[in-house]
Simulated assay, not measured.
Amino acid sequence: MIEPAGRGRTAQLSGIPLPNQTDKTMTSSRLALYVAITLATMSVLPAAHAQSAADQRTISDFLECKLSEKQITRFMDRIDNNAVSGLSRQAGKSGAITLGWEAQKPVRAWGTKSTVVAMLSPHEMLMAIPAPKGGELDMAKQWAERIGGMREDAGVVSMREHMNWHGADYRKAGSGHETRLLVDQKETPGWILLGCHYQEATLGGLQ
């Protein structure tokens, strides 16, 4: 930001003083030097509210079912208090998905990366992975086969066959959690959602 020079003060560019512009001894070479120093200084300053590497790792671990109960509780408390920099709600944005959040930097999990996650509850986070519209079910099946051990229960199959539901809900049980792969062509067209659902009973007071 440039602040105007006043009587007895110097002009400033991003907090670095420049000689008064009325100084007739200022030469183009000296001005170029000041600008170069300013730009160099600005280039190493951290961006305001940048997403930290630690938070990126926590989100990745949440998605891959690697967090402990204490880590989940602590992280969700920080989200509730808007203390996780670089992570914001998608609501109202163009192309937003249901319960979607957008990360400032891509989050890496399950061998891929995305800037969008869906937080379906305080104990469930799914990464939004782009898929061809109309081809979400085929892509979900490929991912389920790649991960291995994923199944749909009879209720999900019945919904698809008898209730005209266009979606899929694959799950793989773990210790206190399950990997979840969700498709809903009506609610989230063009995406498959992959991540982790932590069983509520294992999370104590996190409800």
Rank of each mutant, 00 (worst) to 15 (best):
G6Q: 15
M163T: 05
Q90W: 05
A32L: 10
D80K: 10
A154C: 04
E145I: 11
M125V: 15
D80I: 03
G111F: 03
K24W: 11
S175R: 14
R78M: 08
C196H: 06
M159S: 10
S114Q: 03
S29F: 06
G167V: 06
L126T: 08
I16T: 11
E187G: 03
I147H: 07
T41Q: 08
R7T: 05
A154F: 08
L181Y: 06
M125S: 08
W165L: 06
M119E: 04
H49Q: 14
R74A: 05
S158D: 11
Q12Y: 08
Q56K: 14
W110F: 12
G176F: 03
T38D: 03
L63I: 07
R146P: 04
L120F: 10
G176P: 02
A50D: 15
L137I: 03
T98C: 01
G190A: 04
Q207I: 02
E64W: 13
E102R: 02
G134E: 06
W191F: 06
A201E: 09
D80W: 07
A48I: 14
H197M: 05
G195E: 00
D184I: 08
R171I: 14
W143D: 10
S158L: 08
L206E: 01
S68Q: 12
D23T: 13
P122L: 02
Q142I: 12
A173P: 06
M42N: 08
L194H: 06
P106W: 13
E187D: 13
L33F: 10
